[in-house]
């Protein structure tokens, strides 16, 4: 019976957990997008190679 009681989260605990998970999901999405930006930037630099600096002024 005690175990059953322990398993039930109070409404306040559930709300706090929901907010925490929402924040973590938001951070994960932000990190994912930042990684994508970095990948595109890095790949562009690699593709350009030295040619980025080799142009007439």
């Amino acid at each position: 019976m005690t175990a059953k009681k322990d398993n039930k989260m109070t409404a306040a605990q559930t709300e706090a957990e929901r907010v925490k998970r929402q924040r973590l999901r938001s951070i994960a999405i932000a990190v994912g997008l930042a990684v994508l930006v970095v990948l595109f930037y890095a790949a562009t630099i690699v593709h350009l190679g030295g040619n980025a600096l080799n142009r007439p002024l």
């Binding site: 559930t14 998970r21 999901r25």
Partner: peptide
């Protein structure tokens, strides 16, 4: 198991 939405 929990009603707080999915975790990462």
């Amino acid at each position: 198991e929990i009603g707080a939405g999915p975790g990462v």
